[in-house]
Amino acid sequence: MGFKLLSKLLVYLTASIMAIASPLAFSVDSSGEYPTVSEIPVGEVRLYQIADGVWSHIATQSFDGAVYPSNGLIVRDGDELLLIDTAWGAKNTAALLAEIEKQIGLPVTRAVSTHFHDDRVGGVDVLRAAGVATYASPSTRRLAEVEGNEIPTHSLEGLSSSGDAVRFGPVELFYPGAAHSTDNLIVYVPSASVLYGGCAIYELSRTSAGNVADADLAEWPTSIERIQQHYPEAQFVIPGHGLPGGLDLLKHTTNVVKAHTNRSVVE
């Protein structure tokens, strides 16, 4: 069995187990497998329904001669939608809004960016022009300005110390501490036991640490421990890039980060 097929099978099995364990909360999309990078042309966006009122959005972007996937989250909030992270750029984010209108038909009224990198804030200006209120932590807003990236308009308070959590509509926002970046936030959907790890969490097929220019490698494993301790009931975990899975993604990420750190020390 090929690795790609095995990865998709694991996603399907995880979703099936969740649907059985929580039949009222989960209505997993039966329309197909989780979209992969090879299936999404740059400039297009796919939506994948995880649970009743919960979707991931998947886009792709060219970077350094390669094409990478990027995940975000959409959560229903009454007759409105909360968006977590842009679709990595203005063109993708405009396509995301169009796809949401086509498939869901509810307005996106608020959006949260989970850290300051372009795959999370690139497209904020498109959201703002569409009347979406954009939010991020003060740290993310400051770092985005320093980096020359787009800056969300509103500040999220109460997320300055490791372990801080605040309720934001249908989700809980959690600051686990520094990891992929010093400002990275985690998003949890309690009604569906869905954990969105953003770039602080890796997919299972990833074996290298990737972009760690703004990471705190020493603190990252401790931050992941905080996530595990705060959300032990999480059933569906979405990484910032690639295929979702279960809580095993947290341990896998820790292993990859520690291996990278150990290699760096040896070198």
Rank of each mutant, 00 (worst) to 15 (best):
G2P: 05
L6D: 07
K8S: 13
K8D: 15
L9Q: 07
V11C: 06
V11M: 05
V11W: 09
Y12K: 11
L13H: 03
A15C: 10
M18N: 01
I20C: 04
S22M: 08
P23G: 08
F26L: 05
S27G: 07
V28A: 06
D29A: 06
S30K: 02
S31W: 08
S31N: 02
G32T: 07
G32L: 09
E33N: 14
P35W: 09
T36N: 13
V37G: 06
V37R: 08
V37Y: 07
I40L: 08
P41W: 07
V42N: 11
E44A: 09
R46I: 07
L47V: 09
Y48N: 05
A51L: 06
D52G: 07
D52F: 01
G53M: 07
V54K: 10
H57G: 08
H57T: 06
A59N: 09
S62V: 04
F63H: 15
F63S: 06
A66K: 06
S70D: 13
S70V: 09
G78R: 06
E80N: 15
D85A: 00
T86I: 04
A87Q: 14
A87R: 00
G89E: 12
A90H: 14
T93M: 15
A95F: 15
A95S: 11
A98P: 10
E99N: 12
E101A: 13
Q103Y: 15
I104R: 03
I104Q: 01
L106D: 03
L106E: 08
T109A: 05
R110T: 12
A111Y: 07
A111N: 06
V112T: 04
S113V: 04
S113C: 01
S113H: 14
H115T: 00
H115V: 00
F116M: 15
F116H: 01
D119C: 05
V121W: 01
V121T: 00
V121A: 14
G123A: 05
A129M: 13
A129D: 15
A130M: 15
V132C: 11
T134M: 12
P138C: 01
T140I: 02
E145A: 14
N149L: 14
P152I: 05
P152C: 11
T153G: 05
E157Q: 14
E157M: 09
S162I: 15
D164R: 12
D164F: 09
F168C: 14
V171R: 01
V171Q: 01
E172H: 09
E172Y: 10
F174C: 14
Y175R: 09
T182D: 12
T182S: 10
D183R: 00
D183I: 00
L195K: 01
G198K: 01
C199H: 00
A200S: 13
A200F: 13
I201W: 01
L204E: 12
R206G: 11
T207M: 11
T207V: 10
T207Y: 04
T207D: 14
S208L: 12
A209I: 12
V212R: 09
A213D: 12
D214N: 04
A215E: 11
D216L: 09
D216E: 11
L217S: 04
A218T: 10
A218H: 11
E219D: 12
S223Q: 15
I224G: 10
Q228E: 06
H230S: 15
H230K: 03
P232L: 10
A234K: 15
A234D: 15
Q235L: 13
V237P: 03
I238F: 02
P239L: 06
P239A: 09
G240E: 02
H241M: 04
H241W: 03
G242C: 08
P244K: 10
G245C: 13
G245M: 15
L247G: 10
L250S: 07
N255F: 02
N255R: 09
V256D: 14
V256P: 11
V257N: 00
H260T: 03
T261W: 06
R263P: 04
R263I: 02
S264D: 10
V265T: 11
V266N: 03
